[in-house]
Amino acid sequence: MFLRQVWTVCAKDLRSELRTKEALNSSLAFALTILLLFSFAFDPGADQIQEISGGLLWMSYAFAGALILNRSFARELFNDCLDALIFSPVPGAALFLGKALASFVLLLIVELACLPVFGIFYNVAWADRFGWHLFVLVLASWGLTVVGTMFSALTVNLRMRELMLPMLLYPMMIPALMSAMHLTTVLMSGQAIGGDHWIWVRLLIGIDIIFTALAVALVEVVLVG
């Protein structure tokens, strides 16, 4: 029953988004614009690019991701749909996980679309270790999504929510973004993840577990008070 409710909420959000493409289009366009603008600032052939590739990529993902996460609960405000979800028998945790899952899928779509563009703009061989890239994307994006969805619920009734969400989200995500940037840089420079790099993977896994547990435990209080 719980998983069905999670899936129902997730499918509803994905269906709504794929019809309007409001968050997806704006997020993708924003990410690609950032990558394009950064490409003017750096020499695509330079070795320096490989060293900062993780940082460039994840800064784009983090900025673009905020646009998707902002819409997560804001889309429920029209017609008081959020109220309709809260007074339905769906547990807060199922509502939260459904919305987080939908945002996670949308964020992954944007990230995967940006990856080859990044490779072209910066002349980086991203496809060599695609499986590992995907592994890092999934781990870091879930952390970003969970915290972002929680703050989206927290700021949904604020007038300045578009500003408040990034201000709350980015400081919280510093450890996850640092891990993701480091691991992506390692992969972009052609190395495999192993040895000392595993500490960053463990950090990402820990962040995902801790923030997911905290969000699931606190979401009812955030939504109802």
């Binding site: 509803k12 709504s16 017609n79 008081d80 749909c81 309709a84 007074f87």
Partner: peptide
């Protein structure tokens, strides 16, 4: 509950809205 807001989604069809809430209410 029937409140001030209609509580239905603009970008879903009428059927999808009712099926969604039917599903959420079990």
């Amino acid at each position: 509950v029937l409140g001030h807001g209609i509580g239905v989604y603009e970008e879903l069809s009428a059927f999808e809205n009712l099926r969604l809430f039917g599903s959420l209410y079990g």
